[in-house]
């Protein structure tokens, strides 16, 4: 379980993950905020449909990609949270069968 041990916590803001409101510290990046909220399943891979979450936290591995405010492929370890931000799990493969 991830938790903060900082003496001075920054003020709290609200972000939404899959529609659910989360109160998080405003100076966190998206990946850290989600981990602290107990979320580590950020996306589903395109080829094998496996769950993935953050791995390196320094912008190298691209495993923490997530949908932020409607945009796929955002590096959540490099983006700061902001009030009202809407975050969703990322699934870039085609989810509907009617196409193609």
């Amino acid at each position: 379980m991830f938790r903060s041990i900082n003496n001075n916590q920054s003020e709290l803001i609200t972000i939404y993950f899959e529609g659910k409101a989360l109160r998080v510290q405003k100076d966190l990046n998206v990946a850290t905020a989600l981990l602290e909220a107990g979320i580590s399943n950020f996306r589903e891979t395109t080829i094998k449909n496996e769950n993935r979450g953050p791995y390196c936290m320094m912008g190298v591995c691209f495993d923490c990609l997530i949908n932020i405010d409607g945009m796929d492929n955002q590096q959540s370890c490099m983006v700061k949270v902001s009030d009202g931000m809407k975050i969703n799990r990322q699934i870039t493969r085609n989810t509907s069968q009617d196409e193609q």
Partner: peptide, 25 residues
Amino acid sequence: WTLNGVMSAGAAQILLKESGVVCEN
């Protein structure tokens, strides 16, 4: 090593330094 919940030790360090966030157990 690609499973959810596996991260690098460097990531643990970054979480600690950048945000004071730790992972128990």
